[in-house]
Write a protein that binds this DNA or RNA. Structure first.
Lengths: 213, 213
DNA sequence: CCTACCGATCGGTAGG
DNA sequence: CCTACCGATCGGTAGG
């Protein structure tokens, strides 16, 4: 569970009596905090992590830079929140999809999931994929570990698809990375008004899983 | 033609008589200059463009930062040189491949070209694909124009492949971007000691162009 | 949530 | 190709 999720567990809880507890931040606080993450991912996407300033992020929310520190501990912390959100979105339903028995349907579900997830939030994944260098200390290893877990699901699905003659035999690790690549690259060229995430997901599936012979 | 190429046209020229012309830099100068570009692409790949300092680039060549200014005009100029090299490598043989008549063979050649080119220099293309935000002024538009030209070759090849029933019918622009994506993503996971560019290129072709029915 | 400010980093230059 | 240095930017904090 990400710290973003952890901090929002109070949302929807019953009205509490007496002095409000400051350990459980208000809904408005959480909403604003999520907005900081969204806005920052847009700024960092356009300018890069280092060049994108907290002044810009703040300005886009009609705030001053200092006020952002009410929501995040530091710029590096903000970046970590972006990464947590991206990896959480990726891992969210993957267990469920990985439970699909039929190898072809399972691989299709995984490809579709990756394509849709990235295409639905290109800015988020632009930062996730392109600005990992900004992470500090343990964050790098934490993200890498979660990403390896994610890759594993794909590798297993690819292996099973090869056994079922749904994919040509090849190095499963390489194939998995390549399939993730084809469905992730969309954040580089996606135009949200012109391109539809579901159409793109269909396309990826179509290119890799041609009709059975 | 890139400024990198333009500046190196003296290489291999006959020994000149009289006072050496300073307009035609020496071979050693050009070699060193190319090394700056290579080293910088490694540094910027790891740290990002803004976080990667000229001190680091210089140190990796046993120089002081100030000495780099003998080879490049500015940090932004250095970044432009990296981009020029990447786009030149990409465009180098594409005209030749695009002359292939058979749609299947042509598309295969283009995919193979992209896969090999990127896999042969992951650091160069990591900067090219992930740190475009560092470019200033006209450089952004210049690179974008060359990239559109490159994409066009792919789109035409994809259209012809669809007409020849080598690819399923779909939006050619989207398919071209996706094929470029699958063959470019390799810079993200490539391990030069473990992964072979040609094996990877074969894999991409195999995944997209299954044996004719 | 703000104004005002400090301190470190780093691109770039002077001058040799 | 170097030493020494300047100047701008920007993350972060004090204090309210």
């Amino acid at each position: 569970m990400s710290s973003e999720q952890r901090a929002s567990t109070s949302a929807g809880a019953a009205r509490k009596r007496g002095r409000p507890r400051h350990e459980q931040p208000s809904q408005e606080y959480e909403t604003k905090r999520r907005e900081v993450v969204s806005v920052a991912s847009e700024v960092f996407r356009m300018q890069g992590y280092d060049a994108g300033t907290l002044d810009e992020v703040a300005a886009a929310m009609n705030l001053r830079k200092a006020s952002l520190y009410y929501y995040v501990k530091s710029k590096a912390d903000l970046l970590r929140l972006i990464f947590d959100r991206a990896i959480d979105r990726s891992l969210e339903q993957i267990e469920e999809y990985s439970a699909i028995e039929d190898p072809r349907n399972r691989l299709e579900a995984l490809i579709r999931h990756q394509a849709r997830t990235v295409a639905n939030d290109p800015a988020l994944f632009a930062v996730f994929f392109d600005h990992r260098a900004g992470l500090e200390g343990d964050d790098v290893a934490d993200i890498a570990a979660k990403e390896r877990r994610y890759l594993r699901y794909f590798i297993v699905a690819v292996e099973d698809a090869m056994d079922a003659n749904v994919l040509p035999k090849a190095d499963p690790r390489m194939v998995a990375a390549t399939l993730i690549g084809m469905s992730s690259w969309v954040y580089k060229w996606m135009d949200p008004v012109r391109d539809d995430p579901v159409v793109f997901a269909d396309l990826c599936v179509q290119l890799i899983l041609r009709p059975r012979d």
